[in-house]
Design a protein around this nucleic acid. Structure first.
Lengths: 210, 210
DNA sequence: TAGATTGTTAATCGATTAACAATC
DNA sequence: TAGATTGTTAATCGATTAACAATC
């Protein structure tokens, strides 16, 4: 890993998906070029911030012209790693797991759903999105035989850490954690928490006039 | 609204659910008091930050002793607004909507699920969590007759803004938005975005060594 | 009282915004 | 060339950490 990547500020990283989405929309609308000023109107970030953000990755723009929408879109896709295909499994195929499967299917090139796991006997053997649901017992074996980049952890809080340990042991690089608990994982395994109930609590804070 | 509330930094607000969860865990374990130092070990925030954060709301601690777990837990619950009951509806009862219904049912006192809406004929009239799914057409009328605090927006991107307009018009105070789009809403209506696919993209960035 | 730990002020760090020279 | 707009440096703002006096 180059020293470069270490220097991308967290705040910038978290804005990348939003840039990508905006540029995708603009591309669909047939917009060919855009200035940081117009993109600012579109996104609500300041023009200054947009230029600052993009320059962490290189000079994608052209003075007096702006940014080429299609080229910038491709660049950001590459920066996020969406130009490559990542194998992904979903552990826990309840409503959340199935919703997650739908999201993944929305990305043609970037993700390949390679496995679904659950412990509920009624689910095992049934299919979701053309993929058979395997028993949770098979997880460790599966990870030994298949290279899995990402796991979406959609199990309950009680089993989250145990499953996460197996995922880390099995060589998974990143975990999208929907269980509302903080996972303890070895250095090198990345976690992105999606603690839905916490978003609800924050919203509740916002609407509660104090 | 007191001027006070305006001054809570966003960063502090977003940490509150995590504090609440930690304190709930400690309470369950029978821990009666905790110092900012021990809480720091537990949470991974610095002791300094914890004291700084909590002092935005008042001096909950006691020098030489620390913080009373149960009392602090109650305080943070009140700060978030979880000590009151908020009425909530879910619009779009696909997998995500149903997962959301489960989350809401986890909170006894804080939320009351008062309505579910979908446009899919097969779903209308069926029940989820003891609540009948109504037709989307009934939404506006329902909002006129019932006071709804929060709406979880679990519809597709295409209809999200249209539904959001109706929610705002109907007096909803906050929207938990799962549609991956940025809603345009009148001043005063709060939105908390849960753009799941963006979390996946950020995780992908993290595991992609550049 | 002595030890522990808070509340709070000051110092540092990082992120955002402003300004402007470089340049297409 | 003249106008537009970037890339980049400097200034500001906000958030985190360090330090320590107040006090239980």
């Amino acid at each position: 890993m180059r020293d470069d990547s270490k220097k991308i500020p967290v705040a910038v990283k978290r804005r990348l998906p939003r840039y990508l989405r905006a540029l995708g929309d603009l591309k669909k609308k047939g917009v060919e070029k855009i200035s940081s000023g117009s993109l600012s109107d579109y996104l609500g970030y300041t023009a200054s911030q947009i230029r600052q953000d993009l320059n962490h990755f290189g000079g994608f723009g052209q003075q007096g012209y702006g940014y080429n929408v299609e080229a910038l879109c491709k660049e950001i896709e590459a920066i996020l790693g969406l130009d490559r295909t990542h194998s992904i499994i979903i552990v826990g195929v309840g409503h959340l797991g199935q919703a997650m499967a739908n999201y993944v299917e929305g990305y043609e090139k970037s993700y390949e759903l390679v496995g679904l796991f659950d412990i509920k006997p009624a689910l095992i053997g049934t299919e979701v999105g053309g993929i058979k649901i395997r028993s949770g017992d098979e997880l460790e074996g599966f990870l030994k035989e298949n290279s899995v980049d990402i796991a979406a952890l959609c199990v309950n809080v009680e089993s989250a850490q145990t499953v996460a340990d197996k995922l880390a042991e099995g060589g998974v690089k990143g975990i999208l954690n929907f269980a509302v608990t903080d996972l303890d994982l070895p250095e090198g395994v990345k976690v992105e928490n999606v603690h839905i109930s916490e978003f609800l609590e924050i919203l509740t804070f916002d609407i509660s006039d104090r």
